[in-house]
Amino acid sequence: MRFFARPHQLPPRLAAGAVILNSGLGKADADEQTAAGLHGMAANTYPFLRDMDPVAFTRLLSRCEIALGTALLVPFVPSLLTGAALTGFAAGLLGLYLKTPGMRKDGGLRPSEQGILLVKDVWLLGIGLGLVIEELQAAD
């Protein structure tokens, strides 16, 4: 495993990292109403989250986004590691899109107006998978 990102990996890592870090920082001081909304949407899709306190959930989500965003921005964090973390994070976001009622138009995968905000995260999945695949191929 390489311990420094390849130069061509930096633009997608920087783009994804900046967006995710900004999102995490934005949630760091979320009020109770915002926390309840974020937790409610996540808990409806992922029932194991229902018993978690909304403020604690939002705080944890914020910290995870800050950690992931920072890891993507720092080029000496291995791309295999950041790619795997980004893939998991993006898969969770796309799960919200696929499982939350009203996010998709009836009978397909095309997003409704409400779903546009979540379906756009497919680019994060593409970046994460691209980093993982490249690093696994390079290990051969």
Rank of each mutant, 00 (worst) to 15 (best):
P54T: 07
A35C: 10
G26E: 06
H39K: 10
L86G: 10
T87Q: 06
K105I: 04
G107F: 02
G128C: 07
L109F: 03
L131V: 02
P111L: 00
L10E: 11
K105W: 01
P54Y: 01
F3Q: 15
L129T: 07
R63S: 12
G83D: 06
R63W: 05
L14D: 08
L61N: 15
L81G: 12
D31R: 03
V19S: 03
V119P: 01
Y97W: 05
I127K: 02
A90P: 09
L72D: 08
Q9N: 09
P101F: 00
T34D: 11
G102S: 08
P12H: 04
L72Y: 04
D51M: 10
L117E: 15
P78V: 05
R50M: 09
G69H: 00
D53G: 06
L81K: 11
S23Q: 05
A91V: 15
G69M: 00
P101R: 08
L124Y: 00
A30C: 01
D53L: 00
Y97F: 10
L131Y: 03
A18G: 12
G126N: 11
C64A: 14
L94G: 08
G88N: 03
A43I: 06
F57R: 08
A90G: 09
A139Q: 12
L109V: 05
H39D: 07
A91Y: 11
I66F: 02
S23W: 01
P75I: 04
A85H: 05
L49D: 02
H39C: 11
L68T: 09
Q137I: 10
E65Y: 05
A5I: 10
L96F: 06
R2W: 01
L125Y: 02
G40E: 08
I127W: 05
L117K: 14
L118Q: 10
M52Y: 12
D51Q: 15
L131N: 06
Q114E: 15
T45G: 11
G102N: 14
L86Q: 08
A138S: 13
F3D: 13
D121A: 01
F48N: 11
G17K: 08
F4S: 15
P7A: 07
L109E: 02
A42I: 14
G83L: 02
G37P: 07
T87I: 03
A71Q: 14
L10W: 09
R50C: 07
G108R: 02
L60D: 11
A139R: 14
G88F: 02
G130Q: 05
G26R: 01
L98G: 13
A5G: 08
A28N: 03
L38S: 12
T45R: 10
E135S: 13
E113V: 03
G107I: 01
L61M: 13
P78L: 01
G108T: 00
L38A: 10
A35T: 07
A139H: 12
L25N: 06
D51T: 14
L25Y: 01
T70S: 15
N22C: 11
L86A: 01
D29E: 13
L38P: 14
V132M: 13
A30G: 04
L93V: 15
P7R: 08
R13Y: 06
P11K: 04
I20G: 05
L86K: 06
V132N: 13
F3V: 14
A16S: 12
P75R: 07
D53T: 07
N22M: 11
P75Q: 08
A35Y: 03
T87K: 10
L21G: 02
L60F: 09
A5V: 07
I66D: 06
G37Q: 08
G26Y: 01
R6Q: 14
M1Y: 08
F3C: 14
K99Q: 15
A71Y: 06
